[in-house]
Design a protein around this nucleic acid. Structure first.
Lengths: 214, 214, 214, 214
DNA sequence: TATGAATGAGAGTTCATTCAT
DNA sequence: TATGAATGAACTCTCATTCAT
């Protein structure tokens, strides 16, 4: 499984052609109409398989949802694993600003490629406790822990104000997250500027917000 | 119910007891399980009316959703109507920070009282074009327009950095929105600090971010 | 609820026309093809109702089975209630032979009228623990208890050999039961004599078997 | 396996390991849940073969039922074939009582070993005309014919009352059959005495019933 | 010979909605 | 106005069976 690069889809390769087709159809439809409002019959038709085939591979409709969403969470988390964090500490990034720019670029690229999946994840989390648990497990614990190290690293260097790292992360991540949700999930048809321009502004504001004043 | 001098519950008062019961049941259930996953039968049972009664009052299940969600949007928007904005311009708030503190307090209070409705609104907007239109109409155009006036007002006073007002609003609103969604919709069971503490931190960071440096 | 006479169907009167139609269709089909091999669709068609109607009235297919079979058990037990037993003790029957002749006539008449129900009961008991429990509760405890009194009554009069009443009852009931099952359930198309003739023979043999020899 | 000198498991030996596994699994499941309520998938799993394998060997699910039940009927009949009957006539049994005791012991032993099969046979006969025909052919004609000879033999010796042999057989067989069904199929969890005790009682009653009185 | 992926018909059940009362 | 019985389409899921490997 490579990270910064591309291939994070080892498990995908295990999928047969039909399984792939089903998952793809499910992603598209769940994203478009929501999980509960999508029928397995529709999925089967779009995937060009028999309805029974869906249930042979994914025990239930919910099982299909999980098979659709779970890998997403793993992939979403991938770049935050140890190696990358080490890069920060090994001074690969001189400034926190550099770090978040890199993170944003990397993650927004990924999210844009997986927008439907992101929509499904966000839409369905509130209704499926298992999903919430997985999410907290993956995102909450792992990533948060690592980001806190990063924040503390830059706080030690005097680049970030001396606030609670937890809050800083939530602010930074929240701003980015809010932007992505707003632009790509809730009001995709709004009149937005070019992505890079928007991102640059956000970074500017964020760093303005967390840089200590002399 | 009067919010900032405006009666926003006009329509509520027209409701008969049964209608009220139906709407309340619907709010609870839609919030808990989602619109598509809630059956009219369940709603009827919880409201203690006959299933037919629902359809007498709200032509269809979707009609019920609209009757549930529409007033919410009006109420959400209420405090941003002209009078209030004038207060800003009439120097009722000396600083932008004061203004957003007031707004946040006012709106989070409201949202906390109407959390289920908020959940429904956010969950269902992506799937119902009519809702999205209403939302953009109300929130997007009206509120945004007014907030831009406010931002420009404080920019003129040199209290806010000279960035695009649109972006500033999105940043500020996004941070708050992200916090509310995160805390009350997506991970309500996370280990959060006391609300006021969290809010104070956010305000601090935001104002740090948008205050010009000398 | 009258006993020796006819009407034992109080609960039947509570049934609406449609419910009656569904139950009747179910009885016919369950008896003919077995519970598991009968589809609710078939039942709906035969009853000339919508399939949904079945589930409105009887929560599930199994619920329908219960609604079909339970009353049967009560009715089957009816003539053994106290009054009748008293008749025995009050010397309404001079001989055990008279008593079983009366019982057989009464019960076979009833069973012949409810043959399909009997078939269902016998066929499905092994697969539905609830049914078995009900059956034991009704038939096992109540009737057995009363029959033992009868047997002991006639044993005291010296009309029945001094064997374990339990075994005597099982022998007598078993013979009758075996006859009914064989004739009406398992091989209805066998070449049987006229019913009364067969019954008379059975009674003869039975009484021969349980009469003490001088 | 040799019963009374006759190899009744000829066909069994032709079975491959997989076939054997399938049949065994089918017996267990059909007996437990009934034919219609057992899926080929379950059978395949229990037999640890692929679902397709079942259909390679037994053309259909019904074919499997037949392969399960047919040999049973042959085996059930085995001890009644000519040789054995001759033993009766050759005075191997002095009394009818001896004969039925022998028969009962022999057959109950066999049935207890093949209880699941017995259950299947009894449960499914009413729903499968072919089964019924086979049953009548084997049990009805053959065995009945032979038993009539036996009964007439003992009637000629004055040991049995002068009733219709057909009825006598049905009485005797019915009593035993009723006992077995009751004890092992319908209410296996009832509080029964030790098998031998129960059997002895039945024999006593039966012989009492069919022995002429002087 | 044995597999198990694939099928599509049909299973039981739920659904939003209608309508006579 | 309010009911709740009734509907039949649509739902998720299971079934016996087929067939390429």
């Amino acid at each position: 499984m490579r990270i910064r690069g591309v291939n994070v889809s080892k498990d995908n390769e295990k999928l047969t052609e039909k399984q792939r087709a089903i998952i793809d159809a499910a992603i598209e439809l769940f994203a478009e109409k929501g999980f509960a409002a999508t029928s397995t019959n529709e999925i089967a038709k779009k995937a060009e398989v028999a309805e029974g085939t869906i249930f042979k591979h994914f025990k239930s409709k919910k099982g299909l949802l999980m098979s659709v969403v779970s890998p997403m969470m793993v992939k979403l988390m991938a770049p935050f694993i140890k190696n990358d964090i080490n890069k920060v500490i090994d001074k690969e990034y001189d400034t926190f600003q550099e770090f978040i720019r890199e993170m944003i670029e990397n993650r927004t690229e990924f999210l844009k490629k997986n927008l439907p999946l992101l929509r499904i994840l966000i839409q369905e989390i509130p209704f499926h406790p298992e999903l919430k648990e997985q999410f907290i497990e993956h995102i909450g614990k792992d990533i948060f822990a690592k980001l806190i190290i990063v924040v503390e690293h830059f706080q030690a260097k005097g680049q970030i104000i001396d606030a609670d790292p937890y809050t800083i992360i939530r602010m930074v991540a929240g701003s980015i997250f809010a932007y992505i949700i707003a632009r790509h999930v809730v009001v995709p048809e709004g009149n937005w500027d070019r992505e890079e321009v928007e991102i640059e502004r956000i970074i500017e504001l964020i760093s303005n917000g967390i840089t200590p004043r002399e």
